[in-house]
Write a protein that binds this DNA or RNA. Structure first.
Length: 364
DNA sequence: AATGCGGGGGT
DNA sequence: ACCCCAGCATT
């Protein structure tokens, strides 16, 4: 086994143990592989599978995706995070429709120009769907290669990344590129795992430099950690007697881009002024909920939810795309995880006049 | 609270 | 080449 070429060992392992039941593998069209790769960029397979299946049922091809509204795409994306990915998916679908006659391009340079698709994702699409000879370098492959060659340093730095890319490209076989590519991802996900690598089951154990020196737990080097800052905001949950909740569309870029969210203010006074300004009515029954901490990669967001009531739905808000009266019976548009959770809690205490435990109640 | 899943894009 | 951006689940 040791003398055998790297890719032959990987492929032999794949033939016995590789995953062949992932939904985007049957069939592995460029469209399906593309969508799956985007979903998988920051999200684990078990999480992605149900999202992928719902997405494919609703948007079975590029034409369907291109024709859809961003609101509906975000609705299907709700909970996956990194919502710029959904915008890029939509943008790319329309680009492919308009510029490539609806056929996903199969030239690596053309693919790489599409929004949201970089070097690794472009390689993955063409390798997995078209068997073209391109390397990928996702987190799984980085880990396998960094260990096999005992590459020092954090892969997030340019020199380490460059070394890994060069190795990745050298190792891609001339035949069975799709299987090899899937095999490398499977190897990283199933065998060469981050915390507890199963070296004894690994087809590369014979010449793995990390294993030879007992350093498989230390490689690849972890990203240097930094303290995350804390930001604060107050989210206003305005509801009507009929159960409608006022949501506001966020800007297309930035945090929770394009999603529907609660209007944000700095304090109660600002909330009251805001309601009177936009809705023309004074809010009443103002209840401050306990802080909800939402953690992003680089900062925490401490949200103080402020529940308020208004007498009735104000019509001048309803038809504006900027503001929406949201009702759980007719959900529409994407919601961030904390907003979705807060809406659920709002409805859960339906009929009750008190907020959750520990809240301070005041009347406005 | 810490950490795992990770890559794209702009300057 | 370097720096910035952006979520959720699990432990």
């Amino acid at each position: 086994m040791l003398g055998e070429a790297f890719s032959d060992r990987v492929l032999a392992w794949f033939d016995r143990h590789g995953r062949r039941d992932l939904p985007w593998e049957q069939p592995a069209t460029p469209y399906r592989v593309w969508v799956s790769e985007i979903m998988l960029q920051q999200t684990q397979v078990v999480t992605v599978v149900p999202y992928f299946e719902r997405f494919m049922a609703r948007f079975p091809n590029i034409a369907a995706l291109a024709a859809a509204s961003i609101d509906e795409i975000l609705e299907y994306w709700t909970g996956l995070g990194y919502y710029a990915r959904a915008h890029n998916l939509h943008w790319t679908a329309r680009l492919v429709r308009d510029r490539y006659d609806g056929e996903f391009p199969q030239d690596i340079e053309a693919v790489r120009e599409l929004p949201g698709i970089g070097r690794s994702t472009a390689g993955a699409i063409l390798a997995l769907a078209c068997d073209q000879r391109h390397a990928i370098l996702d987190g799984n492959v980085k880990r396998v290669l960094a260990r096999h060659r005992a590459i020092e340093g954090w892969p997030g730095t340019t020199p380490v990344s460059n070394r890994l890319w060069r190795i990745a490209e050298e190792l891609v076989p001339a035949q069975r590129v799709a299987d090899y590519t899937q095999a490398m991802m499977d190897l990283g996900a199933l065998i060469c795992t981050h915390r507890d690598p199963h070296c004894l089951a690994c087809p590369l154990q014979g010449d793995c430099k990390a294993r030879q020196s007992g350093r498989q737990h230390e490689l690849p080097a972890a990203r240097p950690r930094k303290r995350s800052a804390v930001r604060n905001t107050m989210m206003v949950m305005i509801r009507t007697p009929s159960g409608d909740v006022l949501l506001q569309r966020r800007p297309p870029t930035g945090v929770w881009g394009g999603l529907l969210s609660f209007p944000e203010v700095r304090n109660e006074q600002e909330c009251i002024a805001w309601c009177e300004g936009l809705l023309g009515v004074a809010p009443f029954n103002i209840i401050r909920w306990p802080v909800v901490r939402h953690t992003f990669t680089h900062f925490h967001l401490d949200i103080t939810p402020l529940q308020v009531s208004v007498e009735c739905r104000v019509s001048r808000v309803g038809d504006d795309a900027q503001y929406v009266w949201y009702n759980r019976n007719t959900p529409r548009g994407g919601l961030s995880a904390p907003v979705k959770q807060l809406i659920e809690r709002l409805y859960a205490q339906e009929g009750a006049t008190d907020g959750p435990h520990g809240t301070v109640r005041q009347t406005g």
